[in-house]
Design a binder for these strands. Structure first.
Ligand code: MN
Ligand code: MN
Ligand code: MN
Ligand code: MN
Lengths: 229, 229
DNA sequence: ACTGTTTTTTAGCTTTGGCTAATTCTAAAT
DNA sequence: ATTTAGAATTAGCCAAAGCTAAAAAACAGT
C-alpha cells in the first residue's frame, strides 16, 4: 500500500512559524531569537522547530545561522497571509470589528478555513487587493505586489501621495492616526519633511494640515499618487 | 501568585467529544463505542478521554457505563452547536456553499471562532432561529427550543404542516428531496399516510403532489402549521 | 589571541491526544 | 450457574509542541 498522496495540512504551529520567518526574513535568514520573540515562545522551541521545518522541506537551516524559507515554505506562508488578510477585511467590513480587533481573530481563523472557503470569501468581498491596514493581499498563485511604499519620514516634500498602510505596535499611536483620518487610501500632499526634528507636515483632501512628529511619521507609509488605494 | 482566573478554552478535541455525547446521549449516557464511531477514533481513546472530561467537570462517568454531560458540559456543547449552526447558515446563505458542503467546514471553524465573532455573525445573519437543515439554533444563554417535529411517516393525514428539517446520511436522498423543492420551511398538506407500504402523499403550495416512499418520508420532519420556518 | 556577552543548541521533561494489543468486565444465552 | 460474545479498560507505545537548565558556539571588544 503506497502512501496515498493526500499530504495532511500543516498544523497551525507550523504555519505560524513559517509566517513569522516570512515576515522577518526580508533579506537573509530569520534568527532563532527573532522568531522566538515574534511567537512568544522559548528560543529552545524555535531551535527544535527549525529542524522539523527543514525535514518538512519548508526551510533551509544551518546550525547557529537561522532559517530561510524554501520555495514551498514561501508558498505556504503566502497562502496563510492571503487568508489572514481576506479574513481581516471581512471582519472589518462586514462584522463591525475595528482595526485593532481583527488581527487576533484572523490569527486563529487563518488555520481553520479551507482553500475553498478562502476563494469564496474573496469572491464575496469582491476580490480586494489590499487589506484594511493597506497591506497587499497575495494572489491565489502566491504572487505578491512588489512593495514600493515608504514611511512619510522618507517622502519628498512637494509630492502628492496616498496612504498605503499604517503600521505600529502601539495602539495609542494607531488610534490617534485613525482619529485624524489618516487611514489607508487617504490622499495627501507632502508639504514639508524637516530633517532637524523629523517632523513631517501634510495636507489632506479637506485642506486640513497635520504635523506629525517622527514616531507618527515613521508609522505612516505612502505611495506616490496615481495608483488605487 | 494565584492562578489567574482565565480558564483557557477547551481544545477542539474536547469540544468534539462533548458535542458527540450531547448528540447521542438523548436519554442516559453515551457509550464508549458510540462515541468512538461518531468521532472515528478508537474505543481506547474514548475511555481515556472520558476520565479526562470527568476531571474537567464536563461529564459524569462510571466505569463500564458510559458518560453523560454535566450542566457545564451541556453549556459547552450548546455553545459549539450554536456556533456550528450559525456558521453553516452563513456559508450557505452568503458564500454559496450547498447543503452538503457546509458541515465539514463548520466542524473546523466552530473551534476557531471567538464568542465575539459568533455574536457578530448572528447579528449579521439577522439572528436566525433555524439553520439551513432546519435544526434550531441554541440561544446565547444555552436555551434550545423543545423539539416538536415528527417524520412524515408519523404525520396525520389531513393536517397542514411545514417542513422543519431534512435529515439523512445518504447524499442522493438529500439531493432528490432538494430537487423536489422539499426543503426546510416549505408548507405542505398531508394528503395520505398509507400504513401498508409506508408511502406518504403530500401537496406543496404550488398544488403539486409528491408521493414519498418510506425511506424518503422518514427523512422529512414536519411541524403542524402556524409557526415560522 | 583572549575574554565576556549573547545567541543557539542540547538534554531531559511535560501535556495532549492519538494508537494497538492484551486484559477484564458486562450481559445475554444456554 | 456457566459460558461466551461484545464492550470497555488498561498497559505500553508514539508524535507534536511546548518548557527549563546546562553546554556550546558565535560575536564583539580589547
Ligand atoms: Mn493581521
Ligand atoms: Mn496564526
Ligand atoms: Mn452540521
Ligand atoms: Mn468540530
Amino acid at each position: 500500500m503506497t502512501d496515498s498522496v493526500v499530504s495532511k495540512p500543516f498544523s497551525s504551529s507550523v504555519g505560524d512559524y513559517v509566517k513569522a520567518i516570512w515576515d522577518l526574513g526580508g533579506t537573509g535568514a530569520a534568527s532563532t531569537k527573532e522568531v522566538a520573540e515574534r511567537l512568544s515562545v522559548s528560543p529552545a522551541s524555535v531551535s527544535n522547530m527549525f529542524v522539523r521545518l527543514q525535514e518538512m522541506g519548508l526551510v533551509r537551516h544551518e546550525r547557529y545561522h537561522g532559517a530561510s524559507l524554501t520555495d514551498s515554505g514561501r508558498v505556504e506562508a503566502l497562502r496563510l497571509v492571503r487568508r489572514h488578510r481576506l479574513i481581516e477585511t471581512f471582519l472589518l467590513e462586514h462584522l463591525g470589528y475595528n482595526r485593532q480587533e481583527v488581527h487576533e481573530e484572523a490569527e486563529r481563523l487563518e488555520h481553520a478555513v479551507s482553500d475553498g472557503f478562502t476563494e469564496r470569501l474573496a469572491e464575496f468581498l469582491g476580490h480586494p487587493e489590499y487589506d484594511p491596514h493597506g497591506e497587499p493581499i497575495p494572489a491565489t498563485d502566491g504572487t505578491l505586489e512588489v512593495e514600493n511604499s515608504v514611511p512619510l519620514t522618507e517622502a519628498r516634500a512637494g509630492t502628492r501621495v496616498r496612504i498605503s498602510k499604517v503600521r505600529n505596535d502601539d495602539a495609542p499611536i494607531l488610534d490617534h492616526l485613525e482619529d485624524s483620518g489618516l487611514v489607508p487610501g487617504r490622499p495627501l500632499s507632502v508639504l514639508q519633511v524637516r530633517e532637524l526634528d523629523g517632523v513631517v507636515i501634510v495636507e489632506d483632501e479637506d485642506g486640513k494640515t497635520h504635523a506629525l512628529g517622527e514616531p507618527l511619521a515613521r508609522s505612516v507609509f505612502v505611495r506616490e499618487a496615481l495608483g488605487g488605494a
